[in-house]
Design a protein around this nucleic acid. Structure first.
Lengths: 210, 210
DNA sequence: TGTTCTATGTGATAAATGTTACTGTGTATA
DNA sequence: TATACACAGTAACATTTATCACATAGAACA
């Protein structure tokens, strides 16, 4: 199977001309689970498109916190990389690979040119901005208006959606870090959820029952 | 003074051709302090540019909360209105007038056309997306990583920047609502700040000393 | 098998925040 | 002036979250 067939499946909205351009110009990269693709403060000169694997996007606190924001999945682009690339600014976020990743990097200059040249690229970029902005607003909701128990449920739901499964491979410590709280709090809240029949707890795994 | 001279001052990056287009096509509106320009769930068909006055943007909670996100000021555009207008989506935020406002509304169809036609418009739109995204990320920081005392200081700082003054006309209740906490908590924390010499408290007014 | 390590459970306690109740005080207005 | 009202201060208490201390259980491995 050719790359172009792949692209067409992963980015169905892209026009054939755009896919040709991508194929001739893009830089391919792959990363292993656990790799950090992008760090806070790092300069960005490329827009990133994900073709395979799973990436998690975090906002880093001053004292080493890693607050989970959203997933980046095949067929999606890093909104922050688009934003920063536009002005060769430094990254405001940190990106960590959860599942081995393949991605395409598009230099700033091209990404700008394509905005005018390819309608489907223009729409993809705006769609990316829009959906991420809305997702971040939902995150604001969850922290601004909800207590930890609801935030935990929100967190678990989003992870289930990302992996399209009901068995989440997460330790309590990991969850605590990504919600910026302590493990004990998460253990207790999960226990309560188990008593309410919402989950079943295993070692390194949380089974959603809803 | 003609409108075009005004525009040129308020939106210095706009090209003359763009300003001409705006003048011939835009709809002018004005609102009084206290008016709600946009409600959560409302349909948006126009992009909004502010030429005068002050607007506050809130995220609304399910139980009636009004969480303050950021200010919208002369020379700025509502990023959410741009995003939503693109797909005639409903608003994710609520906009309230703080100080009598004059604004320009640009229909969806034009705003799209201009992206391709006027470089300065294209750059303005992307700049708006970028700066708002970054501002919202800072808001996430403040709630995710900081306790209420620091959040209050952050809040006061942003308000001082918005009005370019050190005397904030805010009641404790107002602040509490916008930070989604209770008045008593704000009163206590402000009192502590006063004891630390950071502010001086008056009725309906907080004087910043730093 | 025995040892070590990581993950989890849980009690005790501290600190931050939320809630209720009541007081006083300045402002506006009848 | 008298009254009503919004705003602010504060005590007492409830709840939530953070921290410390330690116990147990399963997995990995010598």
């Amino acid at each position: 199977m050719h790359d172009s067939d792949n692209f067409k499946k992963i980015f169905p909205s892209f026009s054939d001309e755009l896919i040709d351009e991508i194929e001739t110009n893009a830089i391919h990269q792959s990363y292993k689970a656990g790799d950090v693709i992008m760090r806070t403060g790092q300069y960005i000169n490329n827009t990133i498109l994900v073709t395979k694997g799973q990436i998690k996007i975090y906002r880093e606190g001053e004292n080493g916190g890693e607050f989970f924001m959203y997933y980046l999945q095949p067929g999606q682009a890093c909104a922050v990389s688009m934003i920063c690339a536009t002005r060769s600014q430094t990254s405001q976020i940190m990106a960590k690979v959860v599942e081995d990743v393949e991605l395409i990097m598009i230099p700033l200059s091209l990404m700008e040119k394509w905005m005018m040249k390819f309608r489907s690229w223009y729409e993809f970029v705006l769609f990316t901005y829009r959906t991420r902005f809305e997702e971040v607003l939902e995150v604001v909701d969850s922290i601004a208006f909800r207590a930890m128990d609801e935030r935990l449920e929100f967190y678990l739901k989003r992870h289930a959606e990302a992996c399209s499964c009901k068995d989440l491979k997460l330790s309590h410590q990991e969850i605590a870090t990504e919600l910026n709280t302590s493990r004990e709090v998460i253990s207790r809240l999960l226990k309560k959820m188990e008593q309410r029949g919402l989950v079943r707890l295993h070692r390194n795994q949380i089974e959603l029952l809803t």
